[in-house]
C-alpha cells in the first residue's frame, strides 16, 4: 500500500476513467437503494399490518397488500384504549416541559453568558459536571423527595423540574448567547433598557434558532420518555401515550396485532409530521448538539 502511494498513477484514458466513474456511481446508487429498502421495510410492514385483517397479517409467506383495506382498525385501536386521552396527556406534559425548559434554560444561560460575578465559573463547572449524572442514578432519591412532597400519583414530578433548568440546554444556549454582541446590550442599557427587557427584546429574538432547537428536542424527549412516567404515574387516566401503548401491548395476546400496529402508527405519526415541518431544525439541531465536543 505505502509503496503504491509513492508510485505515480498510471495515466488512464479519459473514456475508461469515465466508465469507472459511472460504474462507481451506479454501485453507490444500488447500495443506497438496497439499504433504504431495508430501513423502510419495518415502516411498510407496520403500515400494511395496521390495515389488514388479523388472519392476513399473520399469513405466511407475508402478504404485502391488504385485501381488503381495513381503515376501521384505526378507529378500533383508538377505542380499545383511551388513545386520545393518552395523547392529550402526553401533549400537555410535552407543552409544560417545553415551556419550562426553554424559559428556565434561557434565563440561566443568559446569566452565565453575560454577567460576570464571583463564583460564576464554579457554578458553571458544576453545571457541566451534572451533565454526567443520568436519570437512573437519581430516580430513587428523587422518588423519596417527591414522596415527601406528596407528589406521587400526580403529574408534578414529570414537569415541575423542567422549570428549574437542565445542564445540557444551559450549556448549549450559553454558547449562543455569548455570540450576542456586548456593544448591542450596552447600547440598549444606555438607552435606559432594563435587564429584563434586554433579555426579552434583544437576546431572545437574536437566538431564536437555538431556542427552537432546545424546544424541539425537549418535545421529542418527553414524547418518548418512558421510565419517568412508569415510576410516577399510577392512575390510568394520567397515562402518557408511551405507557398506554406499553400497557396495551402487554395484554397477553388479547389484542390483535393489527390494532397494535395501528396504535403504534398513530403514535409515530406526530413525530414524522413534526419532522417534515421542521426538517431543517432537526438536522441542524443534531449537528449542533452532536458537535459540541
Amino acid at each position: 500500500m505505502s509503496l503504491e502511494l509513492s508510485t505515480p498513477k498510471p495515466v488512464a484514458s479519459a473514456s475508461s476513467l469515465a466508465r469507472q466513474r459511472l460504474i462507481g456511481r451506479v454501485a453507490v446508487h444500488v447500495a443506497v437503494i438496497l439499504l433504504a429498502v431495508l430501513f423502510a421495510l419495518p415502516f411498510v410492514w407496520m403500515l400494511k399490518t395496521s390495515l389488514m385483517e388479523p388472519l392476513q397479517a399473520k399469513a405466511m409467506p407475508p402478504v404485502w397488500l391488504p385485501n381488503p383495506f381495513r381503515f376501521d382498525n384505526y378507529r378500533a385501536a383508538t377505542e380499545a384504549i383511551p388513545f386520545w386521552r393518552y395523547t392529550v396527556n402526553s401533549l400537555v406534559l410535552c407543552a409544560l416541559n417545553v415551556v419550562g425548559t426553554t424559559t428556565s434554560c434561557a434565563l440561566v444561560a443568559w446569566g452565565f453568558a453575560h454577567y460576570r460575578f464571583p463564583g460564576r465559573d464554579l457554578f458553571f463547572a458544576i453545571t457541566l459536571a451534572t451533565m454526567m449524572i443520568p436519570f437512573p442514578v437519581l430516580m430513587v432519591p428523587q422518588y423519596a423527595i417527591f414522596r415527601d412532597l406528596h407528589w406521587i400519583g400526580t403529574t408534578l414530578p414529570l414537569w415541575v423540574p423542567s422549570f428549574f433548568a437542565s445542564a445540557y440546554n444551559i450549556f448549549l444556549l450559553r454558547q449562543f448567547f455569548r455570540t450576542v454582541p456586548r456593544d448591542l446590550v450596552d447600547a440598549a442599557r444606555i438607552d435606559g433598557c432594563g435587564e429584563a427587557r434586554i433579555f426579552w427584546q434583544i437576546v431572545l429574538p437574536l437566538t431564536r434558532p437555538a431556542l427552537v432547537v432546545v424546544a424541539l428536542f425537549c418535545f421529542m424527549y418527553n414524547w418518548n420518555d418512558f421510565l419517568a412516567p412508569l415510576i410516577y404515574l399510577t392512575d390510568d387516566r394520567q397515562f402518557t401515550l408511551t405507557l398506554g401503548l406499553q400497557a396495551f401491548q402487554s395484554r397477553l395476546g388479547e389484542i390483535e396485532i393489527t390494532l397494535l400496529m395501528a396504535a403504534t402508527t398513530l403514535m409515530i405519526l406526530p413525530v414524522i409530521v413534526l419532522f417534515f415541518l421542521a426538517q431543517k431544525t432537526f438536522i441542524e439541531g443534531i449537528s449542533l448538539t452532536g458537535l459540541k465536543s
Binding site: 414522596r147 406528596h150 406521587i152 400519583g153 410516577y232 399510577t234 392512575d235 390510568d236 400497557a247 402487554s250
Partner: peptide, 19 residues
C-alpha cells in the same frame, strides 16, 4: 372502581408514595 394493568407495581409505588 378502577381497573388497571401492572397493579402490583403501581400499588407498591402508590403505597410507598403515601397515596
Amino acid at each position: 372502581f378502577v381497573s388497571m394493568s401492572q397493579i402490583d407495581r403501581k400499588l407498591l409505588l402508590a403505597t410507598a408514595g403515601g397515596n
